[in-house]
């Protein structure tokens, strides 16, 4: 276990250094925080609502992540394969799982940092009113978990191809599917065509939105946490299998 952590940490550290060695990290952070603010204030009607909460802020996170997380994740493996560094990485005494988890955690921490930089919005709402800070904290955690789920999908798709654009598109499509499956509109139409309720509930249950919404109401239910852990675990395991099959192509 200690060895696993050491190898993983080495990969994670390298990745994080790499983010900040190029302008990519800064560009990403700027775009993320600006879009988050724009969504909140313009689309979400933050002021007009006259409520002291961050609902308009968090409501758009799934849609923000839908494009930004695949953009961050697309390089994870596609770039290693394209440049050949994957051969360097995987012939070091590091296991593939260490490499996958290390890269994933680096990107997830980075997303956490971007998310943390939106905290001024939290201050603002405290300045303007008297929000339930527990709910907001839970929503932040839920948002970060959702980002992690998207990221695991993106990482897996990045292992499918050495072309980053293809990896990006695949990830967006799969993430979109995970988002859509929870929308009332979609669920209603499943019901309308006569699918059994159990099936529809199943679809709703694998949806990220449903679990994210649950957490952002301020309830950190164990089932929601397990859901995110399972989603991330599933996609990273698929990532491992795909990489094993395709690393040399």
């Amino acid at each position: 276990m200690k060895n696993f952590l050491q190898g993983m940490h080495t990969v994670m550290r390298r990745e994080l250094t790499a983010y900040f060695a190029t302008p990519v990290a800064w560009v990403f952070i700027v775009i993320f925080t600006m879009l988050a603010a724009a969504f909140t204030f313009y689309l979400g009607g933050f002021y007009q609502r006259g409520l002291a909460d961050l609902d308009p802020f968090f409501r758009f996170h799934p849609w923000l992540y839908l494009f930004l997380v695949p953009a961050l994740a697309m390089r994870l493996w596609a770039e290693e394969r394209k440049s050949g560094t994957i051969e360097l990485l995987l012939t070091l005494p590091i296991t593939m799982s260490q490499a996958i988890v290390g890269k994933f955690l680096a990107a997830w921490l980075f997303l956490g940092l971007a998310l943390a930089l939106t905290v001024p919005i939290w201050f603002t709402v405290n300045y303007l009113g008297d929000p339930d800070n527990g709910v907001i904290l839970a929503a932040y955690i839920g948002s970060w978990l959702m980002a992690g789920a998207f990221l695991s999908i993106g990482s897996c798709m990045s292992a499918v191809t050495r072309n980053q654009v293809v990896a990006f598109i695949l990830a967006v499509v799969v993430c979109f599917g995970f988002l859509l499956s929870g929308l009332p509109l979609v669920l209603d139409s499943f019901r309308a065509i006569g699918l059994p309720q159990g099936f529809v509930d199943g679809i709703a249950n694998i949806s990220l939105t449903v679990h994210f919404d649950a957490i952002s109401r301020g309830v950190l239910d164990l089932r929601d946490l397990i859901y995110f852990a399972l989603v991330i675990g599933f996609w990273l395991t698929s990532n491992l299998i795909i990489l094993q099959l395709r690393k040399a192509d």
Binding site: A18, A21, T22, S83, G84, T85, E87, L88
Partner: peptide
């Protein structure tokens, strides 16, 4: 083993 893969791939963005 010490290994130099074909084309000597390296992480270009690192010093």
């Amino acid at each position: 083993i010490g290994y130099l893969p074909e084309g000597a791939p390296l992480y270009g963005e690192m010093d």
